[in-house]
Design a protein around this nucleic acid. Sequence first.
RNA 1: GGGCGUUUAGCUCAGUUGGUUAGAGCACUUGCCUUACAAGCAAGGGGUCAUAGGUUCGAGUCCUAUAACGCCCACCA
Length: 784
Amino acid sequence: MLDTKYNHSLIEENKYEMWKDNGYFKCEEESNKKPFCIVLPPPNVTGVLHLGHAWDVTLQDIIIRYKKMEGYDAFWLPGMDHAAIATEAKVVKRLKDKGIDKYEYGREKFLDACWDWTKEHGDIIRAQWAKLGVALDYSKERFTLDEGLQEAVKKVFVDYYNEGLIYRGEKIINWDPAAQTALSNEEVVYSEEKSAFYHLKYKLENSEEYLDVATTRPETLFGDTAVAVNENDERYKNFVGKNVILPIVNKPIPVITDEHADMEKGTGCVKITPAHDPNDFEVGNRHNLERIIIMNDDATMNENVPSKYVGMTREECREEVLKDLEREGLLLEVEPLVHEVGHSERTGVMVEPMVKKQWFVKMRPLADTVLETQKDKNKKVNFVPTRYEKTMNHWMEITYDWCISRQLWWGHRIPAWYKGDEIYVGMQAPEGEGWEQDNDVLDTWFSSALWPFATLGWPHNTKLLEKYYPNQCLVTGYDIIPFWVNRMTFQGEKILGQRPFEDCLIHGLIRDKLGRKFSKSLGNGIDPFDMIKLYGADSLRYYLATDVSKGTDMRFDEEKIKSTWNYINKIWNASRFALMNIEGLKEIKLENLKDIDKWILTKYNKVVKNVTKHMDKYDFNIVGSELYSFVYDDFCSNYIEMAKFSLDDETTKSVLCYILTGILKMLHPFMPFVTEEIYQMLPIKDAESIMISSYPTYDKKQIFEDEELIVDDEILFIKNFRNVKKENNITKDMKIKFESIPNELLIKMLKLEDSITTDELDINSYNVLSNNIIAVIYSPYFLM
RNA sequence: GGGCGUUUAGCUCAGUUGGUUAGAGCACUUGCCUUACAAGCAAGGGGUCAUAGGUUCGAGUCCUAUAACGCCCACCA
């Protein structure tokens, strides 16, 4: 006999190991079943899983379990990401806490420390996946820095280099002065900062005339090599071609005309600092201007500035420069301004645009292929919801060359060797003496961009690759589209000539109850595993999967997990009731069906049809509410209540067992543990585990429209009768006269046996009821 | 500056191709320990669907503006 209370901790013990040990998580590469492959977005080995991960993997697990029950060769490939910059930062800090400096420690030992870190966190993450119950095929687990990925990365690098799609160049890049590495544009986040527009006086050489040059970064004036105005700007016509005197350093620099100078903006004069501003860099290229780098890698001022400023930070230097300008009467005006300033996504410090020699991927041809492919509905990546397609397309339109080199140690080392001016790029080190390998590693996203196929064995022509590429689906948050989805798409289409995945299911972000992002500084974090302890993984999963419609953000609400627990407790008890009454049932015989049997079978089949339709569209919240009302209203409140009067009937038992089995199966992808527990107790089952049982199918022969209407009407009558009874304070001992006698089932349901009468009653003694009932309740049982 | 999203009950959210009386959970009111479940059951109250126009026999749903909030993108000196 089942306990009257659902005990999630007990139920969720040991099942995961059982599924895993029985091989249910494994793909069936040798079978003829249609493949359904998802590669897991590899979590960073930097830390542990949070609620966002729990949401992400729950959605995928639902799809995988559903597809498996539907008869597909469902394959979910797990793995983790080495997360170059993020992990390196963690390991540097860990060593620092032990008093060890990264550079003194040396590259080799540092990498060992990174591998130790990876192993530790990998184990934690795997244990967390198990708690969540996700059906990952561990026999195919990969790591973005394992040998196979290293080979794939090198191959792409070498091939692209030979094709001219990867090049090394001196360009302006986003420099993170804290991590001391280059960043891609995607790794720069902009935030508003209070600053000012400083108007500086650039005097014309040998003249009292001057240009009013407005800038937000006066400290970079040491790097100025020109001042630009628009060629159509009448105001400055006679300045063009002459020199102005750079303040403080008193050096003459030319006044040039360039399209970049906008007559409408500011004063129309722009100082040009080619080494420290992306626009100015372009202007400098057009006019062959000198690039003067004025900062060290940690963003302190270098020896290219007057000695009094050398060694100052950018901020200190700005203050000093402003003081000095003011003293010399060269500061014309300070206009307060709020503007967007770029910061490093990882370290949070202000990004410094700097000219550096870095490696780049030439994006235009790759992006154009994607834009072209997206026009063909049989070849495109189908975003779900479709609006996210725009996010990718827009990025493909505006993207520019991807800076892929990082001045870090943890990552894929760039397969380029140098000897003097010679460069060698290849899979292995070149023959001969004196070659030195590039010290840098690649952006972590360079390897994760190869995830959908490198994990399947590419560059080798493996059976896995053949069968599971393109993947059928990818699931991730919309915040990852620029970093990852886009790059997987252009890499997949370039390297394998096909989209990496057919569908791309996008979910939102999870926020706290007040709609704020979860963050350490706010202290509003929720550990999903605390929730699992309190309510079980099944409750958490169901909540995450069904709370909001696809593609939208979610506000975390523990109350909802609690009410999901109540729902599962309801399912538990309904099952308990059914199991008590179907004990020893040998065979499901759907014969001699009564009206209520036909009614529940009809409702059930309609639900199966709808649920399947919405599962296929990833509309899990709709599936959730379909099943919820079927379980609560149709099955528990109505069928079970009515079935209580015919429990010795073999048909009732069969129907109970049949419907319960179907409910468990449809709920299984959402709440795998409890459904498995109950499934194992069924007297009749079609598989050794619900996980490998077959999904319910719609059966037209079980649709009985007439009986459905009859019972619907009876249910409406019951509800209305109870309502009237309550509103009029009708008590048990009062007699009720009906125009016609309700059927036996209704008499039992409403406990009317003792109160019903057909005798002639004095109309005054029951006027409250009879008129009301007839007036209020519309039902054939009274009107006939 | 460009784009996207959201706005529905006290709160958090559903609402599929336009179609009877707009739904759920939580909260609230009332009555019940009815042997599956009191973490439950039964019944109930509560919404001019952000605003203003429009299309339509019919609009929460489609169109056009407006507002508030949020997000993404963009080289703005």
